[in-house]
Simulated assay, not measured.
Amino acid sequence: MNLINVITAKLRHLFVILLFVFTAILPAQAALSENYQYDTWTSRDGLPHNSINAITQTEDGYLWFATWEGIARFNGKEFKVFTRGSASGLIDSGVRALYADNDGSLFAGGSRGDFWLTSNRGIWRITKQEANAVADGLQSEINFIHYGELDGMPTA
């Protein structure tokens, strides 16, 4: 009986501490959230797919979304979608990873292992096989495919 009383007292003590913590944190969290605006975007708003695999922001302010149906660039008002085809150079719409560096380049990793680099001079595609051949010492440089202004890519 003594052990039960000790456990009950400790549980009451823990409950009071948790109650205090939650009543102190929740109002502060609510006050913080009032300083931010929340938006939700779906395919109805222009995203190519509702599942987002990665998000990044480039130095020019664009938000980039990697989805199973392509890459979407958001300018704050609308989406520009890049899906597979000759205009984008994507051989597959599934994009799993995005990374923006400080030079303004956007790197994208395809779901089939391809790697993409964009800049104001176009898009370069590097296949998984090319990257593996260089890594394995079978060749000394990567042969990439470039898509530029002549392929319909916009210029800066």
Rank of each mutant, 00 (worst) to 15 (best):
T58G: 02
A156L: 12
K10G: 06
Q29D: 05
Q57H: 06
I17S: 03
G89F: 09
T23A: 12
A54P: 04
A28K: 12
R12C: 10
I126W: 09
I17D: 07
Y147E: 05
R96Q: 05
E149N: 07
W68D: 02
V95S: 07
S43P: 01
T56A: 08
S88P: 10
A54H: 08
G76M: 04
A131Y: 05
I142F: 09
N2M: 13
S105I: 01
T23M: 12
I71L: 01
H49A: 10
N132C: 04
E141V: 08
S88D: 11
P48A: 10
D151A: 12
R121S: 14
A24M: 14
Q57M: 09
D60C: 02
A54S: 13
Q37S: 14
T56F: 02
A135Q: 12
T58C: 10
D103E: 10
A54I: 01
Y62E: 01
M153A: 10
N132D: 14
I25Y: 12
A28E: 00
F82P: 01
T42D: 09
I91T: 11
D103Q: 13
T155L: 11
D101E: 08
R96C: 08
N120K: 08
G70E: 11
R44C: 00
D60L: 07
L18I: 09
L98P: 09
N102F: 07
I52R: 11
S111D: 13
F107V: 06
T118L: 00
L150D: 14
T67F: 02
V134W: 04
N5T: 11
S51F: 04
N102W: 02
F15H: 03
A24I: 11
E141W: 03
L90H: 07
E59C: 06
W41P: 03
S140Y: 05
H49C: 06
W124P: 01
S88A: 01
F79A: 10
L11C: 09
A66Q: 04
D101K: 07
K77R: 15
L98R: 01
N102H: 12
Q57W: 01
A54K: 08
Y99M: 05
Q129L: 13
W41M: 01
S51N: 04
D103G: 03
R73S: 02
N143D: 04
I7P: 02
S43M: 11
L90K: 08
S119H: 06
G110W: 02
Y36C: 10
R84T: 02
A66V: 06
E130M: 09
F65I: 00
V16W: 06
Q29M: 13
Y62F: 07
T118W: 08
L63Y: 14
H13G: 03
N120Q: 15
R73E: 06
D103M: 03
G104Q: 06
P27D: 08
G70T: 13
V95P: 04
R12Y: 02
E34M: 14
S105G: 05
D39F: 10
S119N: 15
A97E: 01
Q129V: 11
L32D: 15
K128C: 06
L63S: 05
S111L: 09
G113A: 00
A66W: 03
I145G: 04
E78T: 12
W124A: 12
W64C: 03
N102I: 04
K77G: 07
V95H: 00
N120I: 04
G61C: 05
R125H: 04
N102M: 08
V134E: 03
V6M: 11
G110M: 01
M153W: 12
A28L: 09
L18V: 11
D136I: 00
A156W: 08
L32A: 13
E78K: 11
